[in-house]
């Protein structure tokens, strides 16, 4: 069964609120680089940046980060994702890096992303944006900006479909074995 958790409108609102929170928390928006984690986070980072541009008229640096080479589940995960490119155009040292991902789950991807960022330089601060926090953390990691907290079962799957890749935009939950109870 596939259930809609967020509609396209809900995603828009969440992105818009997160953009405002970023502006509020990082007054002046100086030395900020939004870094999307491949692949879902990249689209979200771009959307947040354009929202911030609308509100404040400031063009933020945007980067993308592939974390394949930093993962700790090589060989454990059955289906390995395609290796995509990392494109960090700003100087990382001294910058305020805002990582953007679609779903926060165990926290292991974020650990990998932080290690990857550290290899580019020594950022002043790293903050984290996620559209969905589904719980079940295995590492002491939390997000600074959350679109929506969604309690899930471990065997469920949260699917973020963005218009850039999917026909129908929305956040869906699938695959619970206890469904229909």
């Amino acid at each position: 069964m596939r259930k809609e958790l967020l509609s396209k409108k809900d995603i828009d609102r969440a992105v818009s609120r997160i953009a405002h929170e970023i502006i509020e928390k990082n007054r002046g928006l100086e030395n900020i680089c939004l870094v999307g984690i491949q692949s879902g986070g990249v689209h979200l980072a771009k959307r947040i940046a354009s929202k911030i541009k609308e509100v404040e008229g400031i063009d933020l640096n945007i980067g993308s980060l592939d974390i394949s080479f930093y993962r700790d589940d090589v060989g454990i995960r059955k289906q390995q994702p395609v290796v995509r490119s990392s494109d960090i155009t700003c100087e990382v040292s001294g910058m305020r890096i805002i990582l953007v991902d679609d779903v926060l789950f165990t926290g292991r991807s974020i650990r990998a992303a932080m290690d990857a960022i550290m290899d580019f330089g020594r950022p002043a601060v790293i903050q984290l944006v996620v559209l969905i926090d589904r719980g079940h953390r295995e590492l002491p990691i939390r997000a600074d900006y959350v679109g929506k907290n969604i309690p899930t079962a471990l065997d469920e799957n949260v699917e973020v479909c963005l218009a850039e890749d999917c026909a129908e935009e929305g956040v869906y939950i699938t695959g619970s074995q206890t469904e229909g109870k």
């Binding site: 080479f69 930093y70 090589v74 290690d115 580019f120």
Partner: peptide
Amino acid sequence: RDIKKVPA
């Protein structure tokens, strides 16, 4: 990059 090594 400056650091040319990854923990892959």
